[in-house]
Nucleic acid binder design. Structure first.
Lengths: 369, 369
DNA sequence: TTGAAAGCGATACCAT
DNA sequence: ATGGTATCGCTTTCAA
């Protein structure tokens, strides 16, 4: 009889909700008779049923105490007898019960913790990580936690998680959200800041890439280069386009020729390989790279071959100093710092007027590379 | 009359709960008469009262719609008239209303998102950040979000936030929690993993520091050093003690003298300064540093002064390659990878038996520095 | 010390 | 398309 009962198959009715309710009632009754039939409390009827989450009510029943007691034990409240405590913890342990933080938070009196969300790009040069590091360090002193929201292609999935997360602000690193997702954020009044990309009518902070390209061009020209080239990173990125545009325009004005163009992915290895090609071809005497990682690869190739190629990178990440690499620095630490400065007022809803847009200017760090 | 009412001072009764309830009822009634008295809905009576959180009910009333409609608007559900939508969003905007993610999560059907918590140490060499970077990258492919929990001296405050956070696991970087806090985590069945410190009877992963010290000593001995010294980092840290112990024991066995000891904080600058002292004193011919950051400072001093001092660092962070610094590598990337591997089964509750303890072995990277 | 009951603020179903 | 109600799983109060 017990076996039979345990295998009853509940067919979903028109409303799964109702069906579930029915089952719960069923289990409730069943549980009541537990002592007679000796069926484990946890019996589920079928895998078609959504797995029931364990609640303190379940724990309380099984431990033979009230839910209040369970709650108190879980929260280490005083005035609990050792025996109750032990009983509860035993059941908790046995079922690997985990409290629902949502429910707890909802019921609690004191609220409002500060949590800032961050979206980091997939294909990332180390630059973003250094910006992130800077952001992290600033928030560390402000009693603000940081959540890094994982995301893949489908931003809509990510946005869904964002909305489930009680953020007080969101930082978007080199990511563009589409209208619909943005609207969702706006509906929910979650302030957000674009980092490293310019967005009209939005809070954003970025470093002027066009100017960076110009600086790089001037660097190579000053070194006496007459046959400069550019190694692209991700060509679909606006940053890549802008850097090249500034670079090419300056070169063309000065030399009346367009710079040669190469393409690499953002790794030292890729930079090294392209550099070997460039050196072999012998058609260039100066290289401007989309980012420092590529440039370091180029530098390695130069040092290995003894080539006289000049090279300049972009970003100003920490290792560039060690390699003695000239670079157009975006000062990741500063960017992070300013980003935090921008976000703070948004968190506290001190949104005076329109969007705050910050444009920083990159600087040349000349290490004679 | 309006003014008077608005300034009524509610004296807290024996139960603040009851007092609050009374006020809510009061406001409810008041709100009902709103059109007659033209009092802003948000009127609070006194700063002694806890600020009432706005709910969708409030929004619904003010927008003149039902709560269902408000919810639908906020979630961009279909089948909403433009007029309702506009009305709701207007009110939302006006009051800067933010949804309660807890309540929403509780009410929602689909649950269970994966979130791993991380505690990073305050005083950190870059090593930890590289381990973190590795961890982050691994989780990125696993649909798991990461939350960095800010913490200061009072871990109890942090633990409280941890418990409020529905984590599916926690990673403790170079931090030791006391018994009580640990018990709280255990009560809640939140699995945790110590990273970079050995803890008996707990899940942990760390790199053998004693062996690292031995390797460093042998390196200097092989370079022909006869007067080696050690630059300490944070002396209270077990890692520092262990590295020194391994180093000193090996040196003493080989040379029958104890190595000289210096102290630095974890910055290049500090390493540089100490190195200048060492070079000036001329009593050493080899330096083993607690971490790469210090060692790089030493290296700079050596290169600037043209000293023949040998130097070896510890950690194997990325920049060590660029500086051509010999180091005892803890391979942060690997540590992160293994840490994630360890945590994953904990998340899925595949806790076969006892604590899983991983000890990795550091390796010498000889760059002839 | 303990159990029971009343919220917390949203979602989702159902009926309209 | 919309309003109302039950419900989510917990904390806290109150009474015992």
């Amino acid at each position: 009889m017990v076996e039979q009962t345990a295998h009853i198959r509940f067919v979903r009715g028109p409303s799964p909700f109702a069906a579930r309710k029915t089952f719960l009632e069923f289990r409730e009754v069943f549980s009541f008779h537990k002592r007679f039939v000796d069926l484990p409390f946890h019996t589920t009827y079928d895998e078609t049923m959504e797995k029931k989450r364990l609640t303190i009510k379940d724990i309380a029943r099984e431990a033979g105490v009230g839910i209040g007691t369970v709650s108190r034990v879980l929260n280490n409240s005083p005035h609990i007898s050792e025996s109750s405590k032990k009983a509860v913890l035993q059941v908790v342990e046995r079922h690997n019960y985990q409290i629902s933080a949502e429910a707890a938070g909802l019921a609690r009196k004191t609220k409002r913790r500060k949590l800032v969300g961050i979206l980091l790009p997939d294909i990332s040069n180390h630059y973003f990580f250094e910006v992130f590091e800077s952001v992290y360090k600033k928030f560390k002193n402000l009693d603000i936690d940081l959540i890094i929201l994982n995301y893949t292609d489908h931003t809509s999935e990510t946005v869904k998680r964002i909305l489930e997360t009680n953020l007080c602000a969101l930082m978007l690193f080199a990511i563009h959200l589409d209208k619909e997702d943005l609207q969702l954020l706006k509906n929910r009044n979650i302030p957000y800041l674009y980092v490293d990309s310019y967005q009209p009518d939005e809070h954003c902070i970025h470093v002027d890439n066009h100017t960076g390209g110009v600086l790089a061009a001037n660097y190579l020209l000053n070194k006496g280069c007459s046959k400069p080239c550019y190694i692209h990173g991700p060509t679909q990125a606006q940053t890549d386009k802008d850097r090249y545009a500034g670079f090419a325009a300056t070169i063309e004005t000065a030399l009346s020729v367009s710079p040669l163009q190469y393409h690499a992915i953002i790794t030292e290895k890729s930079g090294y390989e392209i550099a070997m090609q460039i050196i072999d071809a012998g058609e260039c005497d100066g290289v401007f790279c989309f980012c420092d990682e590529i440039a370091i690869g180029v530098l390695k190739a130069i040092r290995r071959t003894g080539s006289s190629l000049s090279v300049i990178g972009y970003d100003g990440i920490r290792v560039s100093e060690a390699w003695n690499l000239s670079t157009i620095s975006q000062d990741p630490e500063l960017v992070g710092e300013r980003a935090v400065q921008s976000v703070l007022p948004l968190i506290d809803k001190i949104t005076d007027e329109g969007p705050k847009q910050i444009q920083l200017v990159p600087v040349l760090i000349d290490r004679n590379s």
